[in-house]
Amino acid sequence: MKLLTVNFLTCAVKGCKGSAASFPLHFEDAELEQREIGYNPTFLSNILPRLDWDAITTTALELGFTNLPATKPDGSFETADEHKVMRDLHTLLMETEVVQGKMVCRNCGHAYQIKEGIANFLLPNHLV
């Protein structure tokens, strides 16, 4: 499961709809794997406006990535620092995969299991 997808996931439990604590889902016991993918600055520039930067930085810190800035880059690539941030963002979002673990909602505590890189979002009947 690529970390990019986490930016678009929220808890599916009915009682969590509208709760700020249901996004982002937080990783626990995450086993990470790096898979090199060609760097695509155009893709990053296009996806950047859609990213919730607070969610991305929270997830990054929880997984041990400490090199993203507190504020979202503008994607201009005008400076060497901007290039480095975009490279780091590429590594985090595109090359880092969670192969095992779980994502937990901070609102209701429900855990979504991740096995072999696939998250299980099927809910038991009592939570639908």
Rank of each mutant, 00 (worst) to 15 (best):
V98W: 07
G75W: 03
V99K: 08
T58E: 10
A55G: 10
A80C: 13
G101L: 01
K17H: 10
L32W: 05
T58D: 03
E97S: 08
S45Y: 01
I56K: 03
K17I: 09
R50E: 14
Y112L: 10
F43H: 10
M86N: 14
S22G: 11
S76M: 10
T5R: 10
E82K: 01
L9N: 14
G75F: 15
M94W: 05
K17S: 02
W53S: 02
S76H: 15
E82A: 07
V85Q: 09
F65L: 04
A30E: 12
R50K: 11
R35E: 09
Y39Q: 06
T42S: 15
C11L: 06
D88H: 11
C108N: 14
L63S: 05
P73M: 09
A60I: 09
T71F: 08
D52A: 08
C105F: 03
A20E: 07
E31N: 02
H83I: 08
L93C: 10
D81K: 14
L32G: 06
E82N: 07
P49F: 02
M94H: 09
C16T: 01
W53L: 00
H110V: 04
T66I: 01
A60F: 04
V6M: 06
H26M: 15
P49W: 11
S76T: 15
V6E: 15
L51C: 01
N67W: 02
L48V: 06
D29F: 03
V104M: 05
E31S: 14
M103T: 05
E36P: 09
N67M: 12
F65S: 04
Q113N: 12
T42D: 11
G75C: 12
P24A: 05
K14S: 02
L9W: 13
L61D: 12
H90M: 07
P73I: 01
S22N: 12
I37C: 03
P69C: 06
L61V: 08
C108L: 13
G64H: 00
T58A: 09
T57H: 06
A20S: 06
E31V: 13
D29T: 08
V99M: 06
T66N: 09
N107V: 06
E31K: 13
A80R: 07
M94G: 00
P73Y: 02
P41V: 00
K72W: 01
L61M: 06
A60Q: 04
Q113A: 07
P69F: 04
I47W: 05
G18Q: 12
S76N: 09
